[in-house]
Write a protein that binds this DNA or RNA. Structure first.
Lengths: 110, 110
DNA sequence: TCCTTTAATCGATAATCGTCGATGATAGGT
DNA sequence: ACCTATCATCGACGATTATCGATTAAAGGA
């Protein structure tokens, strides 16, 4: 697999992260990744071609949202741990927001 | 003051909100607005011209992040209440993230 | 050594975005 | 009726973005 580049932790900016998350397809990608497991590209069911998916993956990687680990012919992707350390609770809040507020009200209200 | 348009609450999308917040200048605007008060354009000290500031304001308005209330020759801007109802805790997490994680650690740990 | 698989990269295109200066709209003051 | 203040809109520009199909790189298997 080809070489992939990751920014250092201090290069991760809030605006960059939010901008990367501000896209339905990339939001779907991080939702899949929110199980904490590693995933490969076929795991993401998105209505774009392979090259476009790879491009979105690079966008998330460059923003510091995901980590890519090439192994053999595949590339395992997971959420980047530094993100939670740098912006505690941010990703959780985003992931909660992908579910309708009504469902959260029901859960909170009993 | 000219007419301004706001989207209805159900037109506010998570991707749209995150995309709107994914810009340093707009992040600065919402930080100023986070005191819960109404503000006018001169309150936002940003390194862009007036027309560009107005454009950013429209971006935030169209995304459902801010509410604009024209009065006389001025336009009072505030955070939109529906945002918290639709995406509870999201804006708080973003605003917390605008401060270094170290400061939050000190607050939580000390 | 070929063939297959997986995913990054390339080249192209259309669309969107951030920015500016200038202009227009509206309200208030003199 | 004029001038001023505030802010939205217009037109333009360069830069970035999302998308695609085709190609390339790297690894594994026959």
């Amino acid at each position: 697999m080809r070489r992939v580049v990751h920014p250092s932790a201090d290069q991760i900016s809030l605006a960059g992260v939010l901008s990367a998350l501000g896209d339905p397809i990339r939001l779907e990608i991080v939702t899949v990744l929110s199980d904490g497991q590693e995933h490969v590209q076929p795991d993401f069911v998105v209505p774009v071609g392979q090259s476009t998916l790879s491009h979105h993956m690079k966008t998330l990687r460059d923003a510091g949202v995901v980590f890519s680990r090439p192994e053999g012919t595949r590339c395992f992707v997971s959420l980047r741990a530094e993100l939670e350390q740098k912006f505690p609770g941010l990703l959780d809040a985003v992931l909660r927001s992908t579910r309708p507020a009504a469902a959260q009200d029901a859960r909170a209200g009993g």
